[in-house]
């Protein structure tokens, strides 16, 4: 529909030491189930075309992907306009297996932080070891940023993609702006 508005309507800020953008709507499906069950695995991998992720990891292929959320939860990523189809396919694949697949695309906001200082900007807000040797593309963290829940991964070595609750999008965007204020380079990650 033409009346779709993401949480911050693709706001961007480039005034500080990293670029911050809200990137619009991203399809997201919460899949809860026994991740070792064949039907659950199939429901996840068949619609995304990526492998099942291991603990603390995420596998991506463009707008599609699988993120490890907990021992019985995956975040399934797909293009926003394909959520309904994807859900239907997943339900078919799940068959009678006990699982829960539900659309959460609109409950979330997606932001990106990029640039050579992106790691430092994120490390001011999330209690995660973000040094290049500890956190690499392919990894995924469910954590907090300052006072709210968030999850993130690295799209490439200088870009983080963040998922937070839609209602907190403005807060997270503003947090990132403060953390990226000019003159605040830390110089810790070599």
């Amino acid at each position: 529909m033409s009346n779709l508005i993401s949480a911050l309507d693709k706001a961007t800020d480039n005034s500080g030491i990293a670029k911050i953008e809200e990137i619009g709507l991203q399809g997201m499906i919460t899949l809860r189930g026994d991740l070792s069950k064949a039907a659950v695995k199939k429901a996840a991998t068949s619609v995304t075309g990526v492998e099942m992720p291991t603990l603390g990891h995420a596998n991506h292929d463009g707008a599609s992907g699988l993120c490890w959320m907990s021992t019985d939860e995956l975040l399934v990523l797909c293009p926003y306009d394909q959520v309904a189809d994807t859900l239907a396919k997943m339900h078919t694949a799940l068959g009678k297996a006990h699982a829960l697949a539900v659309d959460v695309s609109d409950a979330r906001a997606s932001l990106r932080v990029s640039g050579p200082n992106a790691r430092e900007v994120m490390a001011k807000l999330a209690p995660v070891d973000l040094s290049p040797e500890a956190f690499k593309p392919g990894m995924f963290r469910r954590t907090r940023m300052a006072q709210v829940a968030a999850a993130f991964w690295m799209v490439d070595d200088a870009t983080f993609q963040i998922v937070c609750f839609r209602s907190n999008a403005q807060y997270v965007f503003d947090l990132l702006k403060v953390a990226a204020q000019n003159g605040s380079e830390v110089g810790f990650f070599k």
Binding site: I5, A7, K124, L125, A146, Q147, V148, F165, R166, S167, N168, A169, Q170, Y171, D174, L175, V178, A179
Partner: peptide, 16 residues
């Protein structure tokens, strides 16, 4: 307090 002041003193949750 760190960054928690002004606009980001506390999260303010906003509806659509």
């Amino acid at each position: 307090g760190g960054e928690a002041r002004g606009d980001v003193f506390q999260p303010i949750r906003r509806t659509p």
